[in-house]
């Protein structure tokens, strides 16, 4: 199912629309649950069981297992909920930025500093 409206192409960017919101519902619901420390601990005890509990499909569980940021987005993950997953891993948004752009974290940070000049 896809929306009828013509979508604007923005390089390197996918807006989180109804299609992605449907596709990623289970994945995002699991990540939303990480607002609770108890749930974070339960996930860390048994990731596979926790993914099952939230009904993630094979693709979604695989990108969770592989910590694949672009894969998580492609599987319908929304960055605001994924950030809570990243929090469990001790990663911040600059780690995520580096992972998505193929840079090291230092390179990514330097790019931002340069943009401010």
């Amino acid at each position: 199912m896809s929306s009828v409206r013509q979508k604007r192409e923005i390089p390197g960017t996918a807006v989180f629309d109804g299609d992605l919101a449907q596709k990623g519902y289970a994945l995002n619901k699991m990540c939303f649950s990480f607002n609770s420390a108890d749930n974070r601990a339960e996930f860390q005890r048994d990731e596979h069981a926790y993914c099952r509990k939230y009904g993630l499909n094979e693709e979604q569980e695989s990108v969770i297992r592989n910590r694949d940021v672009l894969g998580l987005l492609a599987a319908g993950g929304n960055v605001y909920y994924l950030a809570k997953f990243a929090g469990i891993l001790g990663l911040d948004v600059q780690d995520l930025g580096a992972a998505q752009t193929g840079m090291t974290k230092d390179e990514f940070k330097a790019m931002l500093v340069a943009a401010g000049k």
Partner: peptide
């Protein structure tokens, strides 16, 4: 700012 996607890190002063 942009957190997600290959364009992560985009800013426009």
């Amino acid at each position: 700012h942009q957190l997600d996607g290959k364009r992560a890190g985009f800013v426009n002063k």
